Computed example of a mutant assay.
Amino acid sequence: MVGSTLTMLLPLCGNNRIDHFFCEMPLIMQLACVDISLNEMEMYLASFVFVVFPLGLILVSYGHIARALLKIRSAEGQRKALSTCSSHVAVVSLFYGSIIFMYLQPAKSTSHEQGKFIALFHTVVTPALNPFIYTLSLRNTEVKSALRHTVLENCCGSAGKRAQI
């Protein structure tokens, strides 16, 4: 709320059109006629509190998980645990990587096209990849069977039910 309010109070000059998919704060700051260092500082502080700090906690928990993984004696057990954790690591990396790239750079430093790509990646590609990433890590046959049943029922209707029989 503070960042949005400070950004909306900035006087804008020149062409007030944003050639982008979304109306993000860094883009509005680029249109300002005045010094935006206070706004950038607030955005960095908020990004640290809401992005970097939680990511740090996640990384610490991954450290504890890795230490627990090393204590598992069987190779099969380690493989299963690592498979489950790796999908989560991939999703977290995609999500936090794009957010950090978007919000922890000075407003005028990124190229326009690069910013568009990262915003699109963060809001469309990352959520679209989540089901595929987690599906790859599904090892439970009951879960796979339920997923197959749901897909056949929704996709193929009664033909899917006949195919199962």
Rank of each mutant, 00 (worst) to 15 (best):
M25N: 07
Q164D: 09
Q105T: 12
M8E: 11
L38M: 09
N154H: 13
M29S: 06
G3R: 05
R139G: 05
G3F: 03
S109V: 07
E153K: 15
T84D: 02
L82V: 03
L59D: 01
H20T: 06
M25W: 15
L82D: 02
L120E: 01
C155Q: 13
P106Y: 12
V60H: 12
M41H: 11
N154E: 08
L136Y: 15
N154P: 00
I28M: 10
I28A: 04
M1A: 10
H88K: 08
P54Y: 01
V60P: 00
R67C: 01
E113M: 10
S87A: 15
S37L: 03
P26F: 02
L9D: 13
V91H: 01
C33Y: 07
P106F: 14
A163L: 14
S4I: 14
D35Y: 02
T126Y: 00
E40A: 04
R162G: 00
A66N: 11
C13M: 06
V89F: 15
S74G: 05
M1Q: 11
M43D: 01
L69T: 05
V34S: 14
F121Q: 06
K161C: 03
K161M: 08
G63A: 06
I58A: 04
N140G: 03
E153S: 12
N130G: 00
G97P: 01
A75R: 15
A107R: 04
G3H: 02
L9N: 12
V52F: 03
S86R: 14
S83V: 08
M102E: 03
S145F: 13
L152R: 15
D35T: 02
R139M: 07
L27C: 04
R79F: 10
G56I: 13
V49L: 11
M1D: 09
V49N: 02
K108H: 09
A90R: 08
R67G: 00
L70M: 11
N140R: 13
L59A: 04
I72F: 02
I72K: 08
